[in-house]
Computed example of a mutant assay.
Amino acid sequence: MLSQLAVIKKTVIRSMTIILCEELEKSYKKLQKKERKKKVWIRDWTARRSIGATCAIFKELYHEDPREYKAVLRVTPEQVDKLLNLIKMKIERQDTFMRDAIPARVKLEVTLCFLSSGISYRLLAIFFRISKSSISKFIPEVCDVMYEALDEYLQVPDNREWEDIQVGFHHRWNFPGCCGAIDGKHVVIQAPPNCGSEYYNYKGTNSLVLLAVVDHDYCFKYVDIGSYGRNSDGGVFQAFSLYPVLENGSLLPEGGFLVGDDAFPLKTYLLKRYPNEPTIVEKIYNYRFTRARRIVENAFGILVSRFRVLALPIQLQEETAIKMIRTTCVLHNWLRKSSLHTYTPPGSIDYEDIVNFTTNLGTWRSEINALPSIARSRINNR
């Protein structure tokens, strides 16, 4: 009898020990799970968007100092409201149970701030209290929508518009028959992976070429973006999407022509200056030619000084960089047409002093160094 009780006692003790060990093991695993670092769905500081730049400093500038607001974003509060009404439906998202969507105004102000300053995504994330990944995702989207909303300001002219441009060059620059000035700029980028030397230009940087035709009023009438920086002058011009219609004479009105610098070939539709000036007539021609061609140089200078992301190496994918560049061009035209005196105030563009016969340089030259022009290099891909 005593031996049976001893066996039962040992069995109970063994069972209790096993149960206790299992419970201790479960408790230890639970403790490990609690101590394990949880994945962050959204950082706490990004959730406090109510004290971000849009709801804090930009709101104060909007109501109290519109001039400084315009200096930061390059557009006035009224223009931001107008632009927001044009694109709001396409960039706005619905709130979900998990989190609130980023407001359309915040997206627009982040994009304009990036274009006007070239500030990094990380600093934008801190200022606006939005994650860096969200910014990198919606900036290309907002650029696309803005370009579509304002595309009427960047279209190839029809015959009547070409004639109006000819009249403008005749009256303002004393160069009749001119339909525009053509030139190209290297926009410095971070070279894509495994690209070799395709983007490497004669300046020793990697770039995309922005080739544009500018009218008498410093507005871009056509832009072609994306040629490799290594291409020579002839290679870039022949890759120009308007090159075939220029060659067959179906683009410009009869007798119309473009003006370009020495980087471009001499054509019946593309005039250049005389390399030498042996006669008075040729000197006069070169003088008037230079006045007309200086338009495109000033247009690029204003573009870069207002949207300084173009003055810095763009560390984005090539497709995103192209979207961003064309958006700055259409914004330039829109602001040039809608706010002439605030976007380009007197003195910001090169002008001639007819009393002292001197040329006064525009203030954009002192604000920022212009992008390097396309010049003749040793590479000639015809």
Rank of each mutant, 00 (worst) to 15 (best):
V188S: 01
L61S: 09
V145F: 06
I91D: 08
T342R: 05
Y147N: 10
E367C: 12
H171F: 02
F114K: 13
E22K: 13
E254S: 09
V213T: 14
S207W: 05
N231I: 02
G184W: 02
I57Y: 14
A292I: 06
F128W: 04
G118S: 13
R230V: 00
K337Q: 15
P77H: 07
A212D: 08
E161S: 02
A47M: 15
V209W: 05
S366P: 00
L266V: 14
A321H: 07
R43I: 00
A321K: 09
R306I: 01
R105L: 12
R288W: 01
I51E: 12
L361G: 04
K9C: 05
R273M: 08
L258E: 04
T342V: 06
Y287H: 12
F97G: 00
L31N: 15
A292S: 15
T279Q: 06
C179H: 04
R129N: 04
R93S: 12
R36I: 05
Q166W: 01
A321G: 12
T46W: 03
E163A: 02
W334H: 10
F169A: 07
I139C: 12
R67M: 09
R306S: 08
L371G: 15
P66H: 12
A125N: 10
G362L: 07
T327E: 04
E60I: 07
S50F: 11
G362R: 02
G234K: 01
S366I: 11
L361M: 01
P345S: 03
N194T: 07
T363R: 02
N369Q: 11
C219G: 07
L242N: 02
L31A: 08
S373F: 05
L154F: 08
L316N: 14
S377F: 00
V245P: 02
Y121C: 14
R336Y: 06
L124Q: 11
G177N: 05
T363A: 15
Y269T: 08
Y153D: 09
Y222M: 03
G204N: 13
V355N: 10
A101Y: 11
T342F: 01
L371Y: 05
Y343G: 09
Y147M: 02
Q32M: 09
T290Q: 13
T359V: 12
N380F: 02
L108D: 06
V7N: 12
S133K: 12
R308K: 11
N85R: 14
H63D: 04
G118W: 03
R273Q: 13
Y62I: 01
I13K: 14
V187F: 00
F357R: 08
P372S: 10
G255F: 07
C329G: 05
R294D: 11
L335G: 11
